[in-house]
Amino acid sequence: MKKRSWGFIVGGLLVALLLAGVVSNFASAHPDGLDSSLREGCTFDAEDNITGGSCPAQQEKEHEVGGPLADYGIAGVDNEFLSTGLSGVLGVLLTFAVAGGAFWLVRRRPAAAEDAEPATADRADAPAGQAG
């Protein structure tokens, strides 16, 4: 791979890590379109808990599996800013590793026949005494 390509990849990775680690903490706390539509018809208290009404969000349950990166944070890290940033960074690194591994597996490799020079063909075409 060319030196210029590596610079582009490393630069892109650094930008993604910066966005995931810092900027993700400033993302909107308001629900997106799906969450918003599921909450239509319900009433909420000051802590955003459903207190009444009728909406599909009332059937919401905690995920059964959970995991170390559940709820956009890292389990066990009490600082919310740090937890969100670290989970973003780990997500970027994991995605980069999986994608890089997949690209490495499917990369175009020169065929074995193309790698070996046809030494016999060169010698057969050359005049006697001038073989390669």
Rank of each mutant, 00 (worst) to 15 (best):
D32Q: 05
D35K: 11
A99K: 00
A97D: 04
A29K: 07
Q58D: 10
G73V: 04
A131D: 08
R39H: 07
K61L: 10
L13S: 05
L38F: 10
A121P: 01
I50S: 04
L105F: 07
E62S: 09
V98P: 00
A102P: 02
A27G: 13
D122I: 04
L17S: 04
L86P: 00
G66F: 00
Q59E: 09
A27E: 09
A29C: 04
N25W: 00
C42N: 02
T95W: 13
D35P: 03
A46C: 02
G129C: 13
A116E: 08
F81V: 11
V77E: 01
A116H: 13
V10N: 08
M1R: 11
G12M: 07
D35W: 15
I74G: 09
T51Q: 01
L19M: 14
D32H: 13
A126T: 05
V92D: 02
G132H: 06
A70Y: 02
L69P: 02
E64R: 11
P68H: 04
D35I: 08
D71M: 09
A29E: 10
W104Q: 13
L38H: 09
N25K: 03
S37T: 06
K2F: 15
Q130K: 08
L19C: 04
A112G: 12
F96P: 00
E114A: 15
G52T: 01
A126L: 04
D71W: 03
S5G: 01
G11T: 09
G7D: 05
N79W: 06
G129P: 15
A116S: 05
L13H: 01
P118Q: 08
P127V: 09
E40G: 11
F8N: 00
G101S: 12
G73A: 06
A112K: 07
L86R: 06
E64I: 06
A29R: 08
F8W: 13
